[in-house]
Write a protein that binds this DNA or RNA. Sequence first.
RNA 1: CGGGAAGUGGCUCAACUUGGUAGAGCACUACAUUUGGGAUGUAGGGGUUGCAGGUUCAAAUCCUGUCUUCCCGACCA
Length: 562
Amino acid sequence: MKLKNSYFYTLREDVKDEESLSGKLLVRSGMIKKVGAGIYMYLPMGLKVLDKIKKIVKEEMDAAGAEEVLMPSLIPSEYYETCGRIEALGKSMFHLSDRFDKPFVLGPTHEELFTIAAKSKVNSYKDLPFTIYQMADKFRDEPRPRYGLIRVREFIMKDAYSFDRDEKGLDISYNKMKEAYNHIYDRLKINYKIVKADTGVMGGSLSEEYQAITNIGEDVLVLCDSCDYSSNIEVSEVVSKEIKEEEKKLELVETPNKESIEEVSSYLNIPKSKCVKAMLMNVNDELVTFFIRGDRELNLNKACKLLKVSDITFADDELISKSNAVPGFTGPINLNSKIVVDREILSMHNFCCGGNKEGYHYINANPKDFKYDAFGDISNVLEGDICPVCGGKLYFKKGIEIGNLFKLGTKYSTKLGLTYLDENNKSFPVVMGCYGLGIGRILASIIEQNNDENGIIFPLSIAPYQVCIVVIDTKNEEQVNIANKLYEDLKSKGIDVLLDDREERPGVKFKDMDLIGIPLRITVGKKVTDNIVEVKERTNSEFTEIKIDNVINFVSDYLKKH
RNA sequence: CGGGAAGUGGCUCAACUUGGUAGAGCACUACAUUUGGGAUGUAGGGGUUGCAGGUUCAAAUCCUGUCUUCCCGACCA
């Protein structure tokens, strides 16, 4: 592509609309433009990168034997009713209706349609297994779109679905996809981790996430310093060691105006880990008090699962007033509300907790001192906790979820009647897996991971152009001719090349080429009279002088090596 | 939805506190001098100050409402 007479533009300053690094760089480099919160246009340079990511994904999907299809985005609501997902997906679905008031949704995820597609094909066990996928827009009414392309409301997702006769088959299909994903993220040069995760609204038994490691990450990844344990904090198991000690006598002590764990702990000089804190919550309009160790946080995801509910919120004053709980001084002893305790509490001794009386806490409380309705692992892991696998020490990293794998099982096939007949003419539901990956989010993650003060540093595999040629003096005919010749020659070799022939000062062109992250730059300047041009890598401040005749070979070799 | 911040030429901001009819930098146009890391000078073009209402002789500025965007919390690729 030649930049003169092209749409290409860049901005010299950050826009105030974007806070994330990748968002700023994408907008400044003219790759995307915001239309509304979480809605963006992809402009030529950005689309070029997007297409390269898509191409890699497609190549690996095809290599894994998956076949591409395309599902609609506009879908009659009834398709989502069968599996109860209008309810499950709730407000995150965009609803609309046609002129006859028939309800439609914009597809937020496509398990149902893929299951229905599979029904057309599957009758016998001989029709299995197979995997189909698509690369299409998804629409989700996010509560809070943010961070540029990282959390948007309309996005391109590659979603694949595997269909097998049994769990064993699913394992094979699943692992094939996992391998394909590994190839994809390796080729994209992403620094990622695979972590265990929650199955969420998709349902099923196992979920693993591909997480790009970045500081802007929305997820906390729990990793172990001595084994390869890795898990999203939302499902990471808390393992605590019981410290045996002799039980002392329960005592109610005065703690005037000391409400928070922080205050109580320092007032009584008891470590936070020897305090128990109460979380007064609303579970289906019933007050439930959760008790966890003072230095931990309640994990709502785990709590919901334990109680088999979909939502837990903070209780309001009215709900709290129905019990004898005193906010700031709530403890499990003689509390008349439903009580759920973290199982860790049951192995603690002589701890401090609220006295259910304004200005009082108990010390030396023990599990035998109170009753509870349920217990389980309901709090978040802390850094330094014990690894549930090897006993090593856990530490955290932040990540952005850029892909995931689900073992769906038979949730959708059962509800939608996707069954096959086995060798004995017996009918069974098909066992499904689903595999998603966000194209735009991958783009954003790569930029989050690869940049410097001059802009984006794209890996060769997805750079909009592999090589750019900058003409220093566009009025110098010789320079222009040489640059054009190099451009044509590189192009004829199938190399993705960009010619900056704009009538701009050299500095402007250098800055722009750096900003958009082109890996290799050829500068055509004064030395053309000696048959010399310069070649420079985006990541290197040094350049190499090269005979014009050798440029093609040099570039070809470079691309082969990297 | 709760909490915080902000909407002024294409972009970044000033003027708002203390009402008097909008200004700078970048970008753009023309000319000149420049030309290897976002040039300089001169002269220009471009804004119903998010929208609607109100107060006032007079509103970017004060008041009310409303919309939008960003940031912090519950969702997810």
